[in-house]
Amino acid sequence: MMDRRDVTAALAALSLGAIRPALALSEPAPERPLRIAMLLYPGMTALDVVGPQAFLAGLSPGTLHLVAKAEGPVPSDTGLSLLATTSLAACPGDLDVLFVPGGDGTPAQMRDPEIRAFLRDRAARAGWVASVCTGSLILGAAGLLEGYRATSHWCVRDAVLPLLGAEPVDERVVFDRNRVTAAGVSAGLDLGLALAARLRGADYARTSQLVAAYAPQPPFRAGTPEEAGPAITEAARRILETLTTDARAAARDLQRR
């Protein structure tokens, strides 16, 4: 039975040409390991990172960088830590994918000039600039979504994205030129597959999906406010109120500068 390392190696081999997709969604990138940087910061949501990383790791054996201000463990918003392998300063300058997750720590990152400067610098040369959940607000705070269609977590999508110059879109994954943004948390899995398809073709993405047995059948239909109904939505809004309020305040502060 294959373990996780075997699966990653197999997908890496697939991405490097073992299968040449007949139905590529765009012209495939050169068949080399891709350079991917995924930002980590205190208070991120771990699944925002781990979901897409599961589908992108096979594209970047040895060249996927988990980037933070300093190498070492970075705590998520539920206490689970992820290990940063590369500092901001050591992150490669030319990237195929620059990725930003969301989480409770989003407002602090929106206000952080070092993070904003890092994102602006790397995005200027990146093939794709991507985010999951409220990570799009961090991109927006860096000026990287002005004039772009984008999505985010439903609690901030329509209220905060316009303050950052973006056009909010109520979709699971939104592509606009080389920007790709995903809705809340679990949508990161969809972003990982959609982006893998753009980078290596539809057959690669389908194979990744099958390896992961990604065939969601949630026990409840409550993943959007429309499905959840008013009472559940109000309970969720109360849980998310601090994040929503602080993100809106950070965006307004940036507008005043």
Rank of each mutant, 00 (worst) to 15 (best):
L98G: 05
S60M: 06
R120D: 08
P73A: 14
E71Y: 03
G165K: 04
A68I: 07
A141Y: 06
S152W: 01
C91F: 03
S60L: 06
L145P: 12
L98F: 11
A57Q: 10
A150Y: 02
L40I: 13
W154K: 08
G143T: 04
G43N: 07
M38R: 09
C133L: 08
L66V: 04
R111P: 10
A57M: 08
P92V: 08
P42K: 09
D77K: 10
E71I: 12
A130D: 04
G127V: 11
L139F: 01
P75M: 07
E146H: 07
R122H: 12
Y41A: 00
V156G: 10
W154Y: 15
I115V: 14
S131K: 00
V49N: 04
P101T: 03
V100T: 02
L80V: 14
A124S: 12
L161D: 11
R35C: 15
R125M: 09
T86E: 06
V49R: 12
G135N: 02
M38S: 11
A68Y: 04
C133P: 02
D77M: 14
W154M: 07
A68D: 02
P113W: 10
L98E: 01
A46I: 15
Y148W: 10
T78D: 11
S152C: 13
A159T: 14
R116A: 09
A89T: 14
L56D: 01
C155N: 10
A54Q: 14
D94N: 13
A126L: 13
H153L: 08
G72W: 05
A141E: 06
I36A: 09
P73F: 14
A150M: 10
S152Y: 06
C133D: 01
V160H: 11
I138A: 01
R116N: 07
F118D: 04
I138C: 03
A123P: 01
K69W: 10
W128Y: 15
P101V: 02
L95P: 03
G127E: 12
C155E: 13
L34Y: 10
E71T: 14
G103F: 00
G135S: 00
A57E: 11
Q109F: 00
L66P: 12
V67H: 08
L137F: 12
R35K: 15
E71G: 06
R111Y: 06
V132I: 02
Y41Q: 10
P52T: 03
F99E: 06
G103K: 04
D96G: 13
V50L: 15
M44P: 08
A124I: 05
L88S: 13
D112L: 00
L119E: 01
L56V: 02
T85W: 11
M110P: 10
R111L: 14
C155I: 10
A141I: 06
E71W: 05
G51V: 04
L95A: 03
R157Y: 11
Q109Y: 04
L80G: 09
M38I: 14
P113E: 05
P73D: 15
P101D: 03
T45C: 03
L56A: 03
A37S: 05
G105S: 05
M38W: 09
Q53V: 15
L47H: 09
A89D: 14
P61Q: 08
V100G: 00
G43H: 02
S152P: 11
L59K: 07
I138M: 01
H65I: 02
L64C: 11
E114W: 09
G102P: 02
V97L: 07
D96R: 13
G79D: 15
V132E: 00
M38D: 05
D121R: 12
C133W: 05
A68Q: 05
